[in-house]
Design a protein around this nucleic acid. Sequence first.
DNA 1: CTTGACTCTCCCCTTAGGACAGGGCTTATA
DNA 2: TATAAGCCCTGTCCTAAGGGGAGAGTCAAG
Lengths: 267, 267
Amino acid sequence: MLSIGEFSKICQVSVKTLHYYDRIGLLRPVRVDAFTGYRYYSQEQMEQMLYIQRLKRYGFLLEEIRELLACTDAHMLASRLLQQKERLKQKKMETEGILSELTAHLQDFERTGNIMGYQKGYEIRLTETPARNVLACRQKMGVNDFGRYYSTLYERVPKEKVTPNGATGAIYHDEEFDPTCSDVELIVGIREREKADKVMESQLCAMTIHKGPYSSLSDAYGALVSWIKENGYTADGAPYDLYVKTQFDSLAPEDWETEVYFPVKEK
Amino acid sequence: MLSIGEFSKICQVSVKTLHYYDRIGLLRPVRVDAFTGYRYYSQEQMEQMLYIQRLKRYGFLLEEIRELLACTDAHMLASRLLQQKERLKQKKMETEGILSELTAHLQDFERTGNIMGYQKGYEIRLTETPARNVLACRQKMGVNDFGRYYSTLYERVPKEKVTPNGATGAIYHDEEFDPTCSDVELIVGIREREKADKVMESQLCAMTIHKGPYSSLSDAYGALVSWIKENGYTADGAPYDLYVKTQFDSLAPEDWETEVYFPVKEK
DNA sequence: CTTGACTCTCCCCTTAGGACAGGGCTTATA
DNA sequence: TATAAGCCCTGTCCTAAGGGGAGAGTCAAG
């Protein structure tokens, strides 16, 4: 039987944390003195504490940890762990993307001496886009789901005997853009007009090329909006982008290239 | 001049966020109607918003971003960015460590079918340690500073003409262990007794071998404390660990090995 | 003039505890 | 014996970066 102070030292956890865990029912002391309210912990609770700490490192919320502790089905536990592993991988990739963005930013500073306006100089062109025949898949989704939905699109290629022309991209139908869930239409360009889900007719567009990871795509988007307002045009449809150079060309994120198109008309 | 709603859509930021940024003085609207309190933003503020978003991605606090925006010295800015880059790298490595821990955990589950008790079975031995002659460096530091202080220790090796014997480790002098800052003594074992900073005399220790990344070292520590209590011993000095197999053997974190020693005496 | 969309301020809520404040219990010391 | 020093308790407020909603005022179109 250990006092809360002893237990806290052994487990390397603050007394406050133990109070908190008691309060939220995550780890209750084995005995509480009815008169003084003093908490007493047992030797075995140390193991549980270590397990809690481990799950916390894995990135679970305390709420989730409580559920995991209550769960007796080892296979369900394992699947939760696997799921968390995927999340950690995701997080790692995110960090890598941002790192490469930051690296590019610093390189840009070395070259130009300009630190704030990194890639402010988007070169914007007004262009009449060609008509595009595309397989399409419109869905409410987050950026993380793109891969999954692209797979389903590409699975249709052999089945429907269509010929991809190399264009891959996404149309953003929402006006306000929420990266966790928005109304996106993924597109894969194909040759056969008659087999296309959708034909994007030729249209006047403001466009620019974004270089670097997708996390900073909003800069290109912003530059386009600015340009459109300043040059007396007005938006005329949903913007879209085409992924020109990507990880599938085995390039690092800072070398990716994306074309961003914004349909416009004269005001 | 844009209303808050228009500005929020263009910048892909919620109105709530704009309110908040106004309140904390991070991004003030260019005009506020004195009667209605309505906020109006300008075209140029969009760029600033994009810059803020970028810095936020880099992991700066809003407080820090405000300082960065006010800072006119480009070189200072660049150094802050560099520093942040190091932090991101650190974070990435941390995530990688935890990932490998989780991977080992799942592998262990596959083998044993036991999910909670991952590496609960530390094999603990009572052993009389040999006397060790060491170069030492005692300091209040966090785990992230280990590398730096080890460098200074190893720089002394050629200068003082000592011969490392391969043992590298750390003694933990604090009773309560705070990973961000604790009283740690880094040690490097050498042959020459007369040139040693410190001689660790032969001593009775409970010891075990921890396999895996350092993030779960506390498990080994916990197992030792448990064993000591249960077997009628009591702690007798500061525990220490020796890094036996590490990244310098070009191994993945799940294959690292660390010996953990806890000096004890019979109660 | 009304309706619906937009905006304002104010208040409470989130995670995982940290920092006191004020008080109770036991033990060591002068 | 008085007091000081450790522990321990509960309770309240605080964090970062906003989200959600209430209740009320404002704007533009029909």
